[in-house]
Design a protein around this nucleic acid. Structure first.
Lengths: 342, 342
DNA sequence: AATAGGGACTTTACCGGTTAAGAAAGCGCT
DNA sequence: AGCGCTTTCTTAACCGGTAAAGTCCCTATT
């Protein structure tokens, strides 16, 4: 605050050159002798100077910040291991490019649209990562109107032509259902995420399709808000049906609901996996610490985030890959899935 | 990128005034007639203009960004509900001041020191929130040298004179142990967090002191890395002792380890709370979805974050409260604690 | 000897705002 | 009418960098 900060001018004065020369040195551009360059760097080191990103940004070069707005209720976000892992993957790539992440939790998509717009308009960010696509997502049009570089984390069918990175959820759901069917399950339920989310509806459709093609005797789906409580509620209602018609296997859309489901089964005196098999999604550490450990559709969320960030850089610099899928979640059997008892 | 952005000049031209006038209008400073002000706002709205924070920052006013670096292994952070909740609390206050959060996950304290320094030097941030203090934390000196406004989230005994916000962990630990002792427990264990962290060592000391003053028959403490796996390991080793000497109650330093502990008990055929009582810390949603639900030392982490952010604003603007504690975690009994069976 | 070419810097004009100082117009007052 | 005082705006200098254009000097070429 009160302390005068060191600027390029001080460095220039100390090195006995113009500030243009300092700029050249720090951007590794040609046109300076070794000796001068050294003198400049020494002066900068002695003064503890680093170029101001603010000024650099203003001067027209690129912006070293990317934005990420996450739209979920605050209380819930804390529990979703997915995001922090995703963010840490994003960070790991940004750091390599000495770029920072501007993170904001928003309450609605409209708020996000406004935020992205003001970030971009105010030159706060050089591009953005968009997550949690809805069907007919308003962000697609908004972002195109702005001409802002964006990587959409979501299936191309949802992201309307934006450069996208996604997991093939339909394939994964199909694999999950096939696996349970192969174990002998004929009555399978799915506890899905928020119905408004695009990937939820894709998973729902894929589940329906799989149930149909496998001619399951029973198939249920229930939409939740991803919270543990909702997962518990859904599980409770699914398992209160009398035994012959009760589902013998449940697939969850995230980890936390699967953990809640496990507790509900215990509370109802049902044994997992003997009475009911449970299959989680995302596979954070949480799945490995329950008893029994949860089988899960497992994928590398950290790597997913890293890939998204890399793709954004590719987009900004004009090279690198365009839209592409990341590895599909694979089934990782643990102790919570087995053939049905009856 | 290619699209020319709207600047203050365009707005000024459209409103038929100088850019100085536009600046005055947007900063709600006196010296403009109502009519002109309206005209300017209308022009800005029509053009979709918002002032560039970058330029605004450069022009000498304050910086509308605060920094937060979190130092924990990436894979683990995802699971710690504490941080996301804390962050969301911070955000909620920042948003009111239309201020953003610059978040970075770092791998070491040295990295954090470097990061904070370059953020500050590069005028990227107007201040910072520091978390996870160690004993003799190097950040204290670094930050003082820079003269950067900072709010330390940690006990004053650790934060060396920086403006601090903290929970009275020692009091909470004492309450936890007293409660268990009151239930009749005489052999109590604590599964703590990373030993290097200051609050861990404070809790450890408080636990020792409580055990001594209550003359417990047995008191164990084990340090972990906060991960579920470590919590499971610790619990397993604590519970393998033969019954008469086995601890009958365990306090955990976070939620996730308590959940892991619960699973270990189940896996070992021990009943919670009959054979062993478990007490979690922080009390995220996770505690309510297990079976039995976990008793916990509960506090408002979201509010904690909000308070820290408010304090930082107070520090920057020169008003508001200085160092102060936030409410001490309170015991919230649920199903995982009861009098010991034997 | 005159000229071209190129290396090593410096100058200067921005980037998009803020802000202190200056100027024009309107008003009340003697 | 002349004076000072506001109110309302404009001007111009900055903030700390970048980058294009300009300057200077030294060497090689014809």
């Amino acid at each position: 605050m009160t302390i005068p900060r060191v600027t390029i001018k001080d460095v220039a004065a100390r090195a006995g050159v113009s500030k243009g020369a300092v700029s050249l040195a720090f951007n590794r551009k040609p046109g300076l002798s070794e000796a001068t360059r050294d003198r400049i760097f020494r002066a900068a080191r002695e003064l503890g100077w680093a170029p101001s990103l603010t000024a650099r940004t203003l001067a027209g070069s690129r912006v070293d910040v990317v934005g990420l707005a996450i739209c979920r209720p605050a209380r819930q976000i804390g529990l979703e291991p997915f995001y922090m892992e995703f963010v840490s993957g994003v960070e790991s790539v940004l750091t390599e490019h000495s770029c920072s992440l501007l993170l904001r939790l928003v309450r609605s998509l409209e708020e996000e649209v406004g935020l992205q717009e003001s970030w971009w308009r105010g030159r706060q960010i050089g591009g953005s990562l968009l997550v949690d696509f809805r069907v007919d997502d308003p962000r697609v049009a908004a972002v195109e109107r702005l001409g802002m570089p964006v990587v959409a984390v979501g299936h191309p069918s949802l992201t309307g032509g934006l450069t996208s990175v996604w997991t093939e959820d339909a394939t994964a759901v199909t694999e999950a259902v096939r696996y349970l069917a192969a174990l002998g399950h004929r009555r399978i339920a799915r506890v899905g995420g928020a119905a408004a989310l695009g990937h939820t509806s894709m998973r729902t459709a894929a589940f329906d399709e799989a149930a149909r093609s496998l001619e399951l005797a029973g198939a249920w789906q229930v939409a939740t808000d991803y919270s543990g409580e909702a997962g518990a509620r859904a599980t409770r209602s699914l398992l209160t049906t009398a035994p012959p018609d009760r589902p013998t296997a449940i697939v969850y859309d995230n980890d936390i609901m699967a953990v809640a489901g496990l507790s509900v089964a215990a509370e109802m005196g049902l044994s997992v996996p003997d009475d009911v098999s449970l299959l989680a999604w995302d596979d954070s550490q949480l799945c490995r610490i329950t008893h029994p450990p949860l089988s899960a559709m497992s994928h590398d969320v950290h790597g997913f985030g890293a890939d998204a960030a890399r793709t954004l850089f590719g987009l900004i610099t004009g090279e690198g890959p365009g839209s592409h899928p990341v590895p599909t979640p694979v089934l990782t059997p643990r102790g919570s899935t087995a053939p049905p008892r009856m």
